[in-house]
Amino acid sequence: MSRSSKAKEEFDAAPWQGKTRKYDIIKEGTVALLVVAILTVALSLLLGSPDDTPLTFKGWATTNSDNFYATAVSELAGTSGTATYGPPYNSAADGLNVGPLWLQKWAGVSRPIDTVNDFVIAPLSTQVMSVEIASALATWKAAAQTEQNTWATNYDSAIAKVEGKLSAVPAGNYGPVPALAQGLTDMAKAGGLDAALLSQGGFFQTDNTKQILFFGDGSYLDDAGTAANLQGGTWGMMNETGRYPGQAWLWLYSFWYQIPPFNNEESKPIGANADAYIMVLMGALSLGLILIPLIPGVKTLPMRIPIHRGIWRQYYEENGIKRRKY
């Protein structure tokens, strides 16, 4: 720090010797609390708050049965979003990177999810099942993994080929996969899958990861997000359901998703790894905000742009202080 800036620091830190006025800090705090409390009560009475009912697997399997069924098959075939995600759920992919930093991969598989067993076989096994489902499960469990893969992949590809129109899927070597998918669809329709996915055969459970990820593998959650204008590409991060304000303070985070190259998944390396780049960028910007007093050029902006003349207008007028050039 130069001698002049050190002197300036000492000057700004010195005790105030000028004019003062009475100040009741306790009264100020009490009045502020009362005003804010009254305002929040008034807004709450007038406008309420958002609370859209959560989606359920029952709702998904009932309103879009084919999509649920096809998603169940993709979980068995290992082609769903979750099955191909990579860390922290599995090793199917490396995940995103920022240049040479493969943070997602390096953090490892800390929340392992096996879509075949966690999403389909285990929930089905918790139910009182029909002879057909019991037989399908027994066949699946007795088969070698390569055979299971062949059945599931054959069926998954066949469904994809007819664009999800199940009635158009030709006969093929699918093993027990159609029966398992139908069993899971029936279970979801009956309302049994939500709890079975959460509990995984246990009692206490507070981790909804498996439910949320399974939801995201189909189109039901995505369609609902689009309908509520919550998609990231349309500023959804700072939106809220209904006509309520959302997390408006995330505007800058949301902003990056609206512009190239971040909003173009085909653009390498940034667009294809947008989540990681934006996270790092926002981390750096947050650090910049915290360290503003130490950043040359930024820390002197308030002196060069005279907004302070308005804040302390009365003081400047009383003391006849003209604006100084910085």
């Binding site: 507070t206 981790d207 909804n208 919550l230 991060m237 359901t241 790894n273």
Partner: peptide, 30 residues
């Protein structure tokens, strides 16, 4: 509610992409 389902599904990708998701699991309600 629905909002928390949506936010947790979407936000997990950001945290997972920089490795934070390995410990900070937005889909874990507890």
């Amino acid at each position: 509610n629905f909002d928390s389902q949506w936010i947790s599904f979407e936000a997990k990708d950001g945290f997972n992409s920089v490795g934070v998701g390995a410990w900070f699991t937005v889909t874990n309600l507890g």
